[in-house]
Design a protein around this nucleic acid. Sequence first.
DNA 1: TCTCTATCCATAGGCTTTCTAAGTATAGAA
DNA 2: TTCTATACTTAGAAAGCCTATGGATAGAGA
Lengths: 110, 110
Amino acid sequence: MGKHGLDLLRGTLDLLVLKTLATGGLHGYAVAKKIQEATDSMLTVEEGSLYPALYRMERRGWIESAWTVSDTKRRVKCYSLTSAGREQLDGELSTWGEFTTAVGKVLEAR
Amino acid sequence: MGKHGLDLLRGTLDLLVLKTLATGGLHGYAVAKKIQEATDSMLTVEEGSLYPALYRMERRGWIESAWTVSDTKRRVKCYSLTSAGREQLDGELSTWGEFTTAVGKVLEAR
DNA sequence: TCTCTATCCATAGGCTTTCTAAGTATAGAA
DNA sequence: TTCTATACTTAGAAAGCCTATGGATAGAGA
């Protein structure tokens, strides 16, 4: 998360990770970095949240991993979306859209 | 919740309840109804989520309660925002805006 | 009258997820 | 040689939402 008192990341982390992997395989640390950069550090995914999330998603068949070597010459575990993962991403994208729309209705109500 | 597989309500429920109470005191059941109506049933707040949330927020001083009698002649516990609750609401509103903006950046990234 | 539905509050127990914190290890810069 | 950034792992705690259940009453309809 970051420092937004609310527990907002919960329920959204999977979506963020899936989307981040959608444009190509990345290793865990790189996923976190990419999310941080994309959001100008508004969101920081802690390692203690990220890795368990990756294991969970792999267990569910949404992503798969392979050990490779990074540009920095280190052994890294590279994750990529499976076809089930793409479906999951599509579902979570529409759910996110519907959810924010619904919240918007409450916030605009009077 | 509703039936949005994701755990999105978590972290947003307080915001929804605070906002719903912002235009005037309401009893618990009415809060749930109002949220459901405002969202055209896209969001349904379960009683098992709502009441504990109300107790939590009262314990934190964001809302206060008083037993009254409803239009339907029943004893109801009416909740209303405290000044601390209004501040909390303001904070959560901006946090929500920042968070959705950040998520948007990830979802639009490529 | 009796029954059923909608209204209303309450809470226990379980489940999931995130965070904190700690540990391990290596490449490259200083 | 030391420090920093990179990179993975996992244990344990904390928190919140959901399912399920319980109880109670007003009013409509049969």
